[in-house]
Design a protein around this nucleic acid. Sequence first.
DNA 1: TATTGTTATACTCTATAACTATA
DNA 2: TATAGTTATAGAGTATAACAATA
Lengths: 174, 174
Amino acid sequence: MPTMPRRAPLDQPPEARAAMPVAPSTRRTADQPLSLGVLSDVLGYHVAQAAVTTVDMFERHIGQPYGLRKVEYSLLLLLLANGPLTPKRLGQALALSGPNLTLLLDRLQDRDLLRRERSATDGRSQNIVLTEAGRSLTQAAGEAAAPMERELDDRLSRAERLMLIELLRKVAGR
Amino acid sequence: MPTMPRRAPLDQPPEARAAMPVAPSTRRTADQPLSLGVLSDVLGYHVAQAAVTTVDMFERHIGQPYGLRKVEYSLLLLLLANGPLTPKRLGQALALSGPNLTLLLDRLQDRDLLRRERSATDGRSQNIVLTEAGRSLTQAAGEAAAPMERELDDRLSRAERLMLIELLRKVAGR
DNA sequence: TATTGTTATACTCTATAACTATA
DNA sequence: TATAGTTATAGAGTATAACAATA
């Protein structure tokens, strides 16, 4: 297959250089903050920006240390707090489609953190059960949440944190 | 390649059925809400749950109608509000790595929504400029934000919305 | 016929290393 | 030697359709 250039040449040729010398690349003057324009009123934008912070915190405090992805962490904590649950309920709680949940459970089962038990009352259904290893890993990872959240203490007061979570729950609508 | 079963058989055989009849599958009793346990204090969990709502709203109001992805929308609105910007600044503002930004700009440039202009003062650098088509699409998509946000009116008061955005900005830390 | 869960698959999103060109 | 941007590539995340087993 012939390779085609994906990008047209820039429209300003290099010859169009300004004569005047300019600030060096190691600049001391900070960039002015960008105007958000319409974005400043778009809740989803701010949610996404906040997620950059929370995802980064998660990776450092829990993802890396315990080898867990965000959804895996949530799923395990739900099992710890509620006891065995069906894939269906887990999928609803975590907004996961069936196929993706299947693969997720496969990974956690391969690590011996949980197992699938067939429902005694409905042969189509399963109960997802934490193994002993799953329980202890989840407990440890759960305790790592506290220091993670404490990282926000210099950005949010305790009252602000509570208020923020309450407002996010209203947006989530459940 | 021989196909190997990815999943071990369930450990409870079908014979282990309870004798007592049980609620039919078309159940009228709603599932009890799950306990969040540790998750109730994990800000990132609530941010992710709220994002399910905002992403869904975005898809219906802007993503589908205008053929824009979330980051594309944000990027275009930043250009509309600030005029030409370098890829570097766009990447910083939107938390995009260089390679991903390059592909993103390729797509938008292929749609003739923006173009790359070489900086007159630094041959390494570029200015990303909205085309006329890009400007008008962005303007239209920008106006669609208002009705989208109004969908939240039954979940958040005006004051709550403002408070929420303010708190999310603190979390984002910029 | 409807529901639970699975398989196969593809597309989007994000991350990393190596490279080009300019400075 | 450092910076801006690109290329190539792989991995994670998410979506859809078709299927099996059970109800």
